[in-house]
Amino acid sequence: MPHRHEFEKELKELHNDLLKMGRIIEQSMDDTIVALKEQNIALAKEIIERDDVIDHMESTIEAQCLMIIARQQPIARDLRLITSVLKMITDLERIADHCADICEYIIKLADEPYKKQIEHIPIMADQVKKMVRETIEAYVEKDIEKAKTACAEDDIVDKHFDDIIAELQEMMKQNQAFIYQGTCFMFVAKYLERMADHATNIGEWVVFHVTGHHKGMN
């Protein structure tokens, strides 16, 4: 019993660290959209620096997982939990990377007033953040239906992406002076679309944690 108690304590710490990482990434997502809309270069640089903190968190949690596996030799559901956490932190870290990627484009456009109102990209970003939040909630609640719902919302993000790209392409055809800025916005939209893909991965790993079946989205 004492051995199991220690094991449960380690799993609880792992759980809390994952949630902390998730909260920081959600903040980075919020800050990224603020920085984009307001062309806030100081905030964009802060987000890029914060990515190093998130990278460190990923490394720390990964080390925790490997240490628990080596010491406790978990099986069945416990092993699925640890495996899922290992996979989820990779996707969370990639989402943070893409926040930093977007911020690099914000900085590139620092001295150039936007020639287009930033409206549809934040709507797309809100949907991506909703997916991330729902997958983390699904993990906490062990709710596979919520995880599946979040994964299905990737189609909504893809539709936003297609619409934004089509709009930007049309604007670039009509105004050559918009080509550079439009290309930057295309990259921003692409990074958001990739974030949604990583959120989908997280949802799939939640399903695996609970059921033992991966990609059980149907």
Rank of each mutant, 00 (worst) to 15 (best):
I47V: 14
A138I: 06
Y105S: 06
D197K: 07
C103Y: 04
M21K: 01
Y114H: 10
L18C: 00
Q39G: 09
T83N: 13
S28A: 08
R50G: 12
M67S: 15
A42I: 11
P113M: 02
V128W: 00
H213N: 14
E49P: 07
M217N: 13
Q117L: 13
R50V: 04
M124G: 05
A196W: 13
E170S: 15
I106D: 02
Q176G: 12
I33M: 13
D52K: 13
H213I: 14
M29C: 12
F208A: 12
M217G: 03
E62L: 08
P122T: 06
H56T: 15
I69S: 07
M131C: 03
T200P: 04
M29A: 10
M88S: 01
Y191W: 15
V157M: 07
D154G: 11
I68E: 01
L19G: 01
A189Q: 10
M1H: 10
E167I: 02
I69W: 07
D17F: 09
A177E: 14
N40D: 15
K115Y: 12
G182P: 03
C151P: 00
G182I: 08
R50F: 05
I106P: 00
V128K: 02
A100R: 01
I107V: 14
G203H: 09
M195D: 13
A196E: 11
T135E: 06
I24P: 01
L14A: 08
M172N: 00
A177F: 08
N16R: 06
I69M: 14
F208W: 10
M1D: 08
M172T: 10
H213D: 15
D17K: 13
L18W: 03
L36S: 10
I75R: 10
R23S: 15
N218H: 12
R4D: 02
P2L: 06
L79M: 15
H5R: 12
E62P: 12
F161D: 03
I118G: 02
I54A: 02
F7P: 00
I202E: 06
Y114G: 01
E153Y: 07
I136T: 10
D52S: 14
T149W: 09
V53Q: 12
A35H: 07
R77N: 14
I82Y: 04
H213R: 15
D52H: 09
P122D: 06
D163W: 03
K146L: 14
G182T: 07
S59N: 15
D78S: 11
I25F: 01
E204D: 15
E204W: 10
D158A: 05
Q127T: 12
G216E: 09
E119H: 12
